[in-house]
Design a binder for these strands. Structure first.
Lengths: 148, 148
DNA sequence: TCCTCAAATGAGAATCAGTCGCAAGCTATT
DNA sequence: AATAGCTTGCGACTGATTCTCATTTGAGGA
């Protein structure tokens, strides 16, 4: 059993919930993706693997994964209901191009200590950090047109 | 005319659009709020000021303010269609409590130089930075129950 | 292994936010 | 004041997400 499956199982048990076949399959699908995804896309992945899981169940499972700390809402601006998994996906900053939508990532190593200090001041117990920078990527700076 | 109104007017003119009474009122409402808001809330503010502006118009205006650089999507996790205005609202980190939803803010002064350096490496032209930390606020750490 | 009961699921109805189309109302310009 | 084009309100519409409820499944005890 993968580590993340154990983690999910532990979370579910603590809530008197069950690690069912459906939930296991959804979890697999989530970790098979390495991009941002939404409920619909996840459902497609499952269907194409001949796993007939209702869309409603996907919608019901996503918040559980979120609470279990296995996925996080994607910080992509304007995106609705988008997630990304966290496992093996270390803390990182997103650099989002406002023109073409491309997303690059950089590690958070240098920013973390600063935020840790502020957390102490605020008495805030940090669970997850996300840093998002919007602007123009290298390519779009060149093809500098009117906005959009 | 406030500075931000001029800025909006300039933006609209460049698009052959007009700074109408409705748009002016919506702009005022946006800048009267110092919290995150969505289209519905903005509409309420306008109604309570006896300004009868259709919700559809509010929805139509928000993207214009966004493009004009006067507001930005709120980085609050899971929030849909939330905005916050930028004018006179310096760059800041959001500390969001995952249990009670409270949001605190801290300035970005110490983080900015680091991100500036990384931006140079990526050849990324930064427009707006948002830092969001999720976790438990001081109050919720104490009343430490089961989640939610 | 079989039973029991709470938890989980599927299917489709219901809800909700956000968008669209169109007729009527403004605005700047001539 | 007439014109042309941009805006607006209204209500219909769409797509996403949630809810309801009858049925099924899973874990633990007999």
């Amino acid at each position: 059993m993968e580590d993340y499956t154990k983690l999910f199982d532990t979370y579910l048990n603590s809530r008197k919930m069950k690690l069912t076949a459906s939930r296991r399959l959804i979890l697999e699908a989530v970790f098979s993706l390495h991009e941002h995804f939404d409920a619909e896309q996840l459902h497609q992945v499952l269907r194409s693997a001949s796993q007939d899981i209702s869309l409603a169940t996907v919608y019901r499972t996503l918040p559980l994964l979120l609470q279990a700390g296995l996925i996080q809402p994607s910080p992509r601006p304007g995106a609705r209901g988008m997630y990304e998994h966290i496992w093996g996906h270390p803390r990182h900053a997103h650099w989002v191009c406002v023109r073409c939508g491309a997303v690059q990532e950089t590690p958070l190593d240098s920013v973390d200590p600063i935020l840790a200090r502020e957390a102490r001041n605020l008495k805030f117990e940090t669970q997850e950090t996300s840093v998002e920078v919007k602007g123009l990527c290298w390519k779009c700076q060149n093809s500098a047109n009117d906005s959009q």
